[in-house]
């Protein structure tokens, strides 16, 4: 990605994110999110974040690979287990990286 494109991406995300945060805060108080939309928004982080990392674990060069020879998938499972048990970002990331190197070396 060229430097100009990267800057355009950064500034666009910054503007969009600020708008998302300011949206209701700058409006008069009577504007509220409809209940159905509120309910839908609750599921956004879990759904979208998973949609971003899942292909990183399960695809190898764009092809589905759920075999035990896929060290990224195995490292991801370790990371999920650590995150489930300890709920720590740093520990999860380090455990996942160590597992990745370990499985890479073993396989």
């Amino acid at each position: 990605m060229s430097s100009a494109t990267l800057w355009a991406v950064i500034l666009s995300i910054a503007a969009a994110t600020f708008w998302q945060r300011a949206s209701f805060l700058v409006l008069p108080e009577r504007f509220q999110l409809p209940a159905l939309l509120k309910q839908a928004l609750r599921y956004v982080p879990a759904a979208v974040l998973t949609a971003i990392w899942a292909p990183e674990l399960m695809l190898r060069q764009g092809v589905l690979d759920l075999s035990p020879g896929n060290e990224r998938l195995l490292a991801g499972v370790v990371a999920i287990a650590v995150a489930w048990r300890f709920r720590v970002t740093f520990g999860t990331t380090v455990a996942g990286l160590i597992a990745l190197h370990l499985f890479d070396w073993m396989l």
Partner: peptide, 18 residues
């Protein structure tokens, strides 16, 4: 292999929701 840190950190953010 630190490029794998991004998906791992995203996993760490996702799991507490589940």
């Amino acid at each position: 292999k630190l490029e794998f840190a991004a998906p791992l950190a995203l996993i760490a953010m996702t799991v507490p929701f589940l």
